Amino acid sequence: MEARALGVDDLELVCRHREAMFRESGRSDDVLRTMTAQFRPWLAPRLRDGSYFGFVLMDGGEAVAGIGLMAIDWPPHPSHPTQDKRGYVLNVYVEQAYRKQGLGRRLMQLAEDEFAERKLQFAILHATEMGRPLYVALGWHATTEMAKAVGA
């Protein structure tokens, strides 16, 4: 299994993986079509300028898993008191036929290595129920974050 960096040509792959991830966590196709129609033009310039980066795992010429990463603005915080950025992990997806082979673990290690290379000392992610056991096993833990849809 070969790892490579995400590139501008991976726009549709990231969109497909993101939709599949949310579909498997119970989101409706109607919502996902709307989301992807908005996500695609959001993602394209970020892939071009490198503000959305990450990795793809390849089996031969086929992309079988991927992870998105960002360095997001965040005020200095007790978890990172000298930095104004956090690493952010998103769109982690492994094709069904390739699950339970350690690919998610490998993607997360690539993410941590990349954040360390960029000198980011703290990272966050939002876990699906399926992904939560992997993240916990890798030392991630729940925080006090809460969420609410407003004005919708």
Rank of each mutant, 00 (worst) to 15 (best):
G104A: 00
W140I: 00
H141E: 09
F122D: 03
D73V: 11
I67E: 01
M146T: 11
L138Q: 15
R18L: 13
E12H: 11
G102E: 02
A3H: 08
Q101E: 02
P75D: 12
D9E: 14
H17W: 15
M21W: 10
G66P: 05
E19C: 14
I72K: 13
M70C: 07
A71M: 01
V64Y: 02
K85D: 01
A142V: 08
G151C: 02
S79K: 14
M21L: 15
R132W: 04
E129S: 04
A71Y: 00
Q121N: 08
V94F: 03
A5C: 12
K119G: 00
E24I: 11
D84W: 03
M1C: 02
R118K: 15
V150C: 07
R86K: 14
E112G: 08
P75Q: 13
L11Q: 08
P81Y: 09
G131Y: 03
L13M: 13
E117A: 13
G139C: 04
K85F: 05
L13F: 14
E129W: 02
Y52Q: 07
E95G: 05
A123W: 06
R46D: 06
R86C: 07
V14G: 04
G7L: 01
R46M: 05
M1T: 09
M146A: 08
Q38C: 08
A44I: 07
I67K: 04
T82L: 11
A63Q: 04
W74V: 02
H126C: 02
V14T: 10
A63G: 05
G87W: 09
D59L: 03
T128C: 03
Q83W: 01
V150W: 10
W74I: 00
L43F: 06
E62R: 15
E112M: 12
G151L: 07
A65P: 00
Q83Y: 05
V136K: 09
W140E: 03
G151S: 12
S25G: 13
M146R: 12
M58T: 01
A127W: 06
S25F: 08
V150K: 05
R99K: 09
W140N: 06
M35F: 15
R23G: 05
A127M: 05
H126E: 12
Q38A: 14
R23Y: 14
G151Q: 12
G60H: 06
Q83V: 00
G61Y: 06
G60E: 09
Q101H: 07
A44R: 15
W74S: 14
Y52A: 12
D113R: 13
V64I: 12
D49P: 00
D73I: 05
V14I: 15
A123G: 02
E117Y: 04
A137Y: 02
H17C: 13
G60W: 10
G54W: 02
E12C: 05
G60D: 02
H77G: 02
A44D: 13
G139D: 07
P75V: 13
E145T: 11
Y52D: 09
E129M: 01
A127D: 08
A44S: 14
Q96V: 00
G104P: 10
I67D: 01
V94C: 04
E2S: 08
P81D: 07
G102Y: 03
K100N: 09
Q38L: 12
G68D: 01
S51N: 13
